[in-house]
Design a protein around this nucleic acid. Structure first.
Lengths: 225, 225
DNA sequence: ACAAAAGTGTTAAGAATACACCCATGT
DNA sequence: ACATGGGTGTATTCTTAACACTTTTGT
């Protein structure tokens, strides 16, 4: 657009959506169907049409390219706006990137993309644009915000065992935690409470099922950055 | 601009620049010379011309409107990108906002603005657009990042007394801190070291002058959000 | 001598860490 | 009976918080 005689850059939006699969942190990618980077994997996104907020535009493109509904995620926030410098033949642009996390996300085949799937963040292919870097940045931020947002709870079932909660933490942080200390801390924080139900599975003692205290959610999501 | 037949919003950039004056946190504002909000105070900024990064554009407009050179600040980072919804007759837009902090900043009269000055954040006038809200957001973030960035050090002299450091903290946090605990913690962190010089001023015991350990700066500025 | 800010230590409470064994279940 | 993951407690260290008096200077 042109403002007071000044041409401003194009605006793109992208989403970095995380999910846990097999106790591994994964990120949603989609295969590009056109140049540049045709055939390569990339974050879902597209140009930001006017008459929508950047959030709505991101939501639209993620749905369009991967079939995933962003509104159903439990955690989503703006990550950063990147100046796009390389590989964009359409001219200068900025990309407003959102980051989110959810569970049970199944990408669906859509008309305008070849393919979409979740890749483990620890072994990503070489992606289009600077998307490898963006994902690294998002992962760093997710790691940093785990302890004071509801992000983990968005990635595990509504009813969960403390072991599930712990392994979600471990998957995001990339390190093992001490079981007793983890449980002690979480229970003392008062963020979760036992439901009385049990999770029976496998040849071992059943696990108590817990629930996240939604009341504390508001406080937690009043987060900066 | 138009991408694949899609018109994208205009891009604006703004800067939220903090400085301490009389042990009070203040923010740089400039008086608007044209509609909308003509005559009202606002954050310095303007449209983002292509061929510049958003940082460069913000730097340009801050200089143009207030005479302040952003590159001389000790702390600057991207704050957030806001969807501009109201009061913009030129159509939909997004505003990429940067936040910074410095010392001894003197706004200069410039041709394209009536006036620029620092206002205490605790008593701001009603500003143009949603700038009051943006400053509140920036202040929250600055507060949160004080303890793990070099932001405070950007706001005090290179050689400083521990009392100056403490009152900078207090000005940003908006609360009094315990002198002994503050000093103990800072000295044990190893972020600062005494220079041996003394600061003589007033009818009281002279104060030791300290310096920030620049080595630790890199680690500190590897910050998220 | 007094006013004004600089400087200094100890104690108590709470948080973080390290660490090893018994429990309930399915096969 | 055994394999599997669920569940539990204590001692130690480190961090945080609360709190009041002496020192050095200028006037």
């Amino acid at each position: 657009m042109t403002v007071a005689g000044v041409k401003t850059p194009e605006v793109y939006v992208d989403g970095v959506l995380f999910q846990l699969l097999d106790n591994e942190l994964t990120v949603l990618l989609t295969q590009r169907t056109r140049s540049p980077f045709k055939g390569q994997w990339a974050l879902p996104g597209g140009p930001d049409p006017i008459k929508q907020t950047t959030y709505q535009a991101m939501s639209h493109w993620v749905k369009e390219k991967t079939g995933v509904k962003v509104d159903k995620l439990g955690f989503i926030e703006q990550l950063y706006s990147f100046d796009t410098v390389v590989g964009n033949p359409d001219g200068p642009a900025i990309s407003v990137v959102y980051m989110g996390a959810g569970r049970d996300i199944i990408p669906k085949a859509t008309p305008i993309t070849r393919n979409s799937q979740f890749f483990p963040v620890s072994s990503l292919p070489e992606l289009a644009f600077d998307h490898n870097e963006i994902i690294r940045y998002a992962h760093d931020r997710l790691r940093a915000k785990l302890s004071y947002t509801n992000a983990v709870f968005a990635m595990i079932p509504k009813l969960f065992t403390l072991s599930q909660l712990q392994s979600a933490y471990e998957a995001v942080l990339g390190e093992k935690l001490d079981k007793r200390n983890f449980r002690k801390k979480f229970l003392s924080l008062g963020l979760v409470h036992p439901t009385g139900e049990l999770h029976m599975e496998g040849a071992h003692r059943p696990a108590r099922l817990y629930k996240f205290n939604e009341q504390t959610l508001e406080y937690l999501s009043r987060s900066f950055d």
